[in-house]
């Protein structure tokens, strides 16, 4: 008897997880790499063989470090200006500002 109850919850949980993932709009899952927006030590990583570069950026908003953000939002991220007053924006390509 116990077993059939568990069978039900197992099957229900399994089916629910699948129906949830199938109804997610594909767009919601899309991410883009955004350069120049990561806080120090919190960047994501493309993880080439033998590297662990996630979390390796040395300064805030390092230009060649990136973070995954929702697609279409990278350039809109608000960032503080640089010390010389120049504006900071996120970029889909690596930047030369804020070097490591």
């Amino acid at each position: 008897m116990t077993k059939s109850i568990h069978a039900l919850s197992l099957a229900g949980a399994f089916a629910l997880s699948i129906s949830t993932v199938l109804t997610l709009p594909a767009e919601a899952a899309k991410k883009e790499r955004c350069y120049g927006v990561s806080l120090k030590g919190q960047n994501d990583c493309k993880a080439g063989a033998g590297t662990t570069c996630a979390g390796s950026s040395k300064v805030d908003y390092q230009g060649d470090a990136w973070t995954y953000v929702d697609a279409g939002t990278c350039k809109k991220i608000k960032l503080p200006a640089q010390s010389d007053g120049m504006r900071r924006n996120g970029s889909l390509k690596p930047l030369s500002r804020d070097p490591a």
């Binding site: 099957a11 089916a15 590297t51």
Partner: peptide, 22 residues
């Protein structure tokens, strides 16, 4: 980070299974 990629099994193939199947 270093682990190989995989091709995910399509979730739609797992719909409509019976309790026993699962």
């Amino acid at each position: 980070c270093d682990a190989p990629d995989h091709t995910p099994y399509p979730a739609q193939n797992l719909t409509g299974l019976t309790e026993t199947d699962i």
